[in-house]
Amino acid sequence: MTTEAKAETAYRPRAVRSAGRWEADHAALKLFTITATPEPMSAEAIALARETVVADGSANGLGFVILHRGEEALWLLLHWWLPGGILGQLLWSSPLAGPIRFEARDRPLMACVWELVPISFERDLYVRTIMHGRSAEDYLAASLPDGSY
């Protein structure tokens, strides 16, 4: 790996924020936003992300959504808990330039290092709450503190 390549992949913390809760059909979803720049996520991006998730209809039960404005694209990740502690996931992206149009992405994509922060938090929370007999409201009420991760 060259020095230039190392500089490109250097880790720089990003702003992670809890952005509320969505009720969508048979799902209760927490929203996290991640931004590579200091500006908060736009209301338009959040509205279009919600529209995409609701239109898809895959989520059922409890879960969370990550909307990440990175350096290469606007990423939308939908996660929902399935029986047995299994986490379902769908992934969309939209170019940063031009109108927001989320398009489904195929595997092997899963998540980046910044998106793994709320994913890890939600995993641990799910174990502490739902898998230990606590209520869905206990799970939904807790959130990753806003910060730079």
Rank of each mutant, 00 (worst) to 15 (best):
Met1Lys: 04
Met1Trp: 10
Thr2Val: 08
Thr3Ser: 12
Thr3Lys: 14
Glu4Asp: 12
Glu4Lys: 14
Lys6Val: 07
Tyr11Gly: 01
Arg12Leu: 04
Ala15Glu: 12
Ala15Trp: 11
Arg17Trp: 02
Arg17Pro: 00
Gly20Arg: 08
Gly20Leu: 03
Gly20Tyr: 02
Arg21Lys: 13
Trp22Asn: 08
Ala24Leu: 15
Ala24Glu: 14
Asp25Trp: 08
Asp25Pro: 00
His26Ile: 00
Ala28Arg: 15
Leu29Gln: 07
Lys30Ser: 06
Leu31Arg: 10
Thr33Asp: 00
Thr33Trp: 02
Thr35Trp: 01
Ala36Tyr: 01
Thr37Asn: 10
Glu39Tyr: 06
Met41His: 09
Met41Arg: 12
Ser42Val: 10
Ala43Phe: 03
Ala43Gln: 13
Ala43Trp: 02
Glu44Tyr: 07
Glu44His: 12
Glu44Asn: 11
Ala45Asp: 10
Ile46Ala: 12
Ala47Lys: 12
Leu48Thr: 05
Leu48Arg: 15
Leu48Asn: 02
Arg50Asp: 06
Arg50Ile: 05
Glu51Gly: 09
Asp56Arg: 03
Ser58Glu: 12
Ala59Tyr: 03
Asn60Gly: 07
Gly61Tyr: 05
Gly61Ile: 04
Leu62Cys: 02
Leu62Pro: 00
Leu62Phe: 03
Gly63Glu: 06
Phe64Lys: 06
Val65Gly: 07
Leu67Arg: 06
Leu67Ala: 13
Leu67Asn: 08
His68Arg: 05
Arg69Val: 11
Glu72Thr: 15
Ala73Arg: 12
Trp75Cys: 10
His79Tyr: 15
Trp80Asn: 03
Trp80Ile: 04
Trp81Tyr: 13
Leu82Tyr: 06
Pro83Tyr: 10
Leu87Arg: 13
Leu87Ala: 10
Leu90Val: 01
Leu91Arg: 11
Leu91Thr: 08
Trp92Ala: 03
Trp92Leu: 04
Leu96Ile: 14
Ala97Tyr: 03
Ala97Asp: 15
Gly98Ile: 14
Gly98Leu: 07
Arg101Pro: 00
Ala104Glu: 14
Arg105Pro: 00
Arg105Ser: 08
Arg105Asn: 09
Asp106Leu: 15
Asp106Gln: 13
Ala111Glu: 05
Val113Lys: 02
Leu116Gln: 06
Leu116Trp: 09
Pro118Arg: 09
Glu122Asn: 10
Arg123Val: 03
Asp124Tyr: 04
Leu125Val: 00
Tyr126His: 15
Tyr126Ala: 11
Val127Cys: 01
Val127Leu: 04
Arg128Cys: 02
Thr129Leu: 01
Thr129Glu: 00
Ile130Gln: 09
Ile130Ala: 08
Ile130His: 09
Met131Gln: 13
Arg134Asn: 06
Ala136Glu: 15
Ala136Lys: 11
Glu137Phe: 05
Tyr139Val: 00
Tyr139Ser: 01
Ala141Ile: 01
Pro145Glu: 08
Pro145Val: 02
